[in-house]
Design a protein around this nucleic acid. Structure first.
Lengths: 104, 104
DNA sequence: ATAATAGGCAACCAAATGGTTGCATGTCAA
DNA sequence: TTGACATGCAACCATTTGGTTGCCTATTAT
């Protein structure tokens, strides 16, 4: 799971996921368009996303197509994010109460 | 939002959030226990969590108490994770279909 | 008053990260 | 078949990151 969090920690990589979410199955060159960095930099980012299982690829002739895999994102939502949403109100009220002690 | 993702990208920091989730309002020294690293390293991690607004602190005498703020985690869930859950089935079926082309 | 406790600050260091460039390879089209 | 196109590989570089150590300050307890 650490790999997924690390992969999501970079804005360029999140942008790549966004673009695949908007249109799945893009080639490397398509994903490079408009991303002020070299093709090789994008390749590295995609490799990290692939290692985290967030992107799957499929070679078609000389093109490499990239597909979004939403499962790890979903798992983070399920196993991590929701845990902190549970009891959110309780945590907030504690937080509020303690911060108000500043004024004592 | 980038700060929040970056803050969550480290296992030690996620562990600190876990521990605050288990028991809110711990001091720095309490949070150090069992975390094979120096107090100063923990201080730095907590500073990053604080900068990302994931932790709020409150000085009480010579102690510094740390409180979890679940709001940024919730926002990531709302604004980012859910987006990818929407259309998850569609993405998965495309993914499956394309990966099966390997066998053609 | 003095010692112990809780924490802060700053300099330093190794390794990881995010990027580059140059060149090589494989595939398609004329 | 030959040139153009899509991608891969490797070396290199600067900056960031995660950690350390040493010392300083503030608060509490004896």
């Amino acid at each position: 799971m650490d790999e997924v969090f690390k992969a999501l920690a970079d804005a360029s990589r999140r942008s790549l996921l966004d673009r695949l979410h908007a249109r799945n199955g893009q080639t490397l060159n398509e994903l490079c368009d408009g991303l002020a960095m070299s093709r090789q930099a994008v390749t590295k980012h995609l490799a990290i996303l692939e290692a985290a299982n967030l992107v799957a690829t499929h070679k078609h002739g000389r093109e490499k197509l990239h597909y979004l895999n939403p499962v790890p994102i979903h798992e983070i939502g399920e196993r991590w994010i929701r845990k902190f949403e549970h009891g959110k109100l309780a945590a907030l009220s504690t937080l509020k109460r303690q911060l108000e002690k500043r004024d004592e």
